[in-house]
Simulated assay, not measured.
Amino acid sequence: MHPVRPLELEFCGERYAVEPGAEFRIGREGDLVVDENPYLHRTFLTLSEEFGLWWLANVGHLLTATVTDATGAVQAWLAPGARIPVVFETLHVMFSAGSTTYDFTIHAGGDFFRTSVSAQSEVGGTTVLPVTLTTSQRQLIVALSEGVLTQSLPGRGEVPSSADAATRLGWSMTTFNRKLDNVCDKLDRIGVSGLRGGRGRLAVNRRARLVEYAVATRLVSREDLPLLDREADGPAPVDGD
C-alpha cells in the first residue's frame, strides 16, 4: 500500500499542512481555529488517515457540513458521526454555526475519481442544474446567499434573517415565507437533506442549509447577484413566478 500524501487546507487565504500520522482538528479550538463563535463545536471536523486514504469526519453532535468536489457535481451532507474519504483532488467544505457560514478547501494533490460538469439548460430564462427554479425562487436563494457570494476573501459569510432578506427583495414576509417553503419543498423532493424537520416540520436552520447547498453545488453564483435588483421597486411576485 502506497503511503498517503500530505494534504493542504486553505481557509481565509491561509494554507495549513496536514501531515500523515496525526489527527488534524478543525473547530473553535484545534489545528485550525475557525472562529470563536460559541455556536461552533470546540472540535467539529477532523482529518485523519486510515486504510491508505484520508478521511474527513464530523465529530460534533449538532452541526453538519456540506462537502462537494471542485465542480459541485458531487455533493454529500456530513452529519454528526459520519465521515467521508477524500477521493477528489479538490474538496470544498461548507458549514454554518449560528448565522455565520464558513467554508474551506482541501487540496489532496491527486484524485481517485474525476467528475465533469453536467450540461446546463435554459428554462424560462433561468439556467438550472439540477433543479428548475423560477426567477423569484432564484432571487430568494441569492438574497439569502448574498453575504457568502460577496465575500472579498472566501472563508466566512453571514446568512441574513428572513426579515432582512425579505426587505432586500422588497417582499412581504408572507410572500418570502411562502417562497422559502416552496424552494425547500422542491429541493427536499429531489433528495437534498436538512431542509425539513421530522413529521413535515420545517427545520429551524433551513436557511443556512439552503445557502450551503446552493453555493456549494453552484446552484447560484456571483453572476446571479444582479437578480437582487431586478424589479426591486415592482410588485411582489405571485405564486407562479
Rank of each mutant, 00 (worst) to 15 (best):
E49V: 02
T132A: 12
H41I: 04
F112D: 14
V123Q: 00
L169E: 00
G13I: 11
A119P: 14
C184S: 06
I106W: 07
G200M: 00
S118K: 14
A97H: 10
T115M: 09
R206F: 07
L219C: 03
S96P: 12
Y102S: 06
W171S: 01
L7P: 05
D229N: 12
S121K: 13
G194I: 01
R156N: 00
A82D: 15
E23L: 06
E89F: 08
A17E: 15
R156Q: 14
T43Y: 05
L153N: 14
T135E: 13
L9I: 09
A165P: 08
L78A: 07
R178L: 09
R201T: 09
N205M: 06
S161R: 14
R42M: 12
S193Q: 12
H41A: 15
E19M: 10
V93K: 01
T134P: 04
G109N: 06
N58Q: 04
W171L: 08
Y102M: 06
V87K: 06
V211C: 11
F24V: 03
V87A: 08
A79M: 15
R206W: 08
I106E: 02
H107P: 09
Q137L: 00
L187H: 01
R218C: 09
S193R: 13
D188Q: 08
E212G: 03
P154G: 13
R156G: 01
F176A: 02
R42N: 13
